[in-house]
């Protein structure tokens, strides 16, 4: 599904990603952990196509295509989804319009007819029920005045609506209470299937109690320094990142 080979990227001349290699197969859940400043969010941003990052070297293939060549909107339409660490407030753009445009753009890309208003509302209701979301969420402007937890739940709701092939959750668990954490987990687990993959970028092991990863990678100083099964997350929780740092020296 996704192959990253020797990816090097910098921001304003400062190299952040220093040769990332990662292979994600359909149906897998990967956790990327690491201390602050390791480059976790940069990886998410580079993959989703945010401007301001210089790709120095390497290649990324997504579903057989050169991902780095695509515009952010085409990456999304092909099935890449980034759950933002800091979802953006967009006053004046109603959630419903935003989501309807988004869903229909995805359908158009696949050569499907756009959903009618009725079909769209039905789909929205289904997904909201599935995640046990407050119906008020969609009556407001995109993320405007949402609490931290509501914003993250909204990301997961959008993910559920768009059913991406590959979802990247960038620190979706940070600052969440148990209730919101459960929504996130339900969203990811509902999407779990042999065709869908997920990358969970996280700082803590907490979320991984709910979403069980197939692989855990430790990103440190712009490189993946350790990869193992889910037990690695528990070990990190116990020993902290210093253990990895020491091991490297």
């Amino acid at each position: 599904m996704l192959t990253i080979k020797n990816l090097r990227a910098s921001v304003e001349g400062k190299e952040i990603l220093k040769g990332i290699n990662l292979e994600i197969k359909p149906g897998e859940i990967h956790a990327i952990m690491g201390p602050n400043g390791a480059g976790k969010s940069t990886l998410g941003n580079v993959l989703s196509g945010r401007e301001g990052y210089e790709i120095e070297e390497g290649e990324v293939t997504f579903l057989g295509e050169d991902l780095l060549d695509l515009s952010p909107e085409d990456r999304a339409r092909k099935g890449l989804f980034l759950s933002f660490q800091y979802p953006v407030e967009i006053p004046g753009v109603p959630m419903v319009n935003f989501l309807k445009t988004s869903v229909n753009e995805h359908r158009k890309f696949k050569g499907l007819e756009p959903l009618t208003a009725g079909e769209f509302l039905k789909l929205m209701r289904e997904k909201k029920d599935m995640l046990h979301l407050d119906s008020q969420l969609t009556n407001r402007s995109v993320n405007e005045g949402f609490s931290g937890g509501e914003k993250k739940k909204n990301e997961i709701f959008q993910m559920a609506m768009l059913e991406p092939k590959l979802a990247i959750l960038d620190e979706t668990d940070s600052g969440l209470d148990i209730d919101a954490l459960r929504v996130v987990a339900e969203g990811v687990n509902a999407l779990k299937s042999p065709e869908h993959s997920t990358i969970v970028i996280t700082h803590y092991q907490r979320l991984l109690d709910y979403i069980v990863p197939d692989f855990v990678h430790v990103l440190y100083n712009g490189q993946i320094v350790k990869s193992a099964g889910k037990e690695l997350a528990l070990e990190l929780e116990e020993k902290g990142y210093d253990w990895i740092k020491k091991e490297l020296v």
Partner: peptide, 9 residues
């Protein structure tokens, strides 16, 4: 960018 990342051109 947020909107583009959701597939909106």
């Amino acid at each position: 960018f947020y909107m583009r990342a959701r597939g909106i051109n």
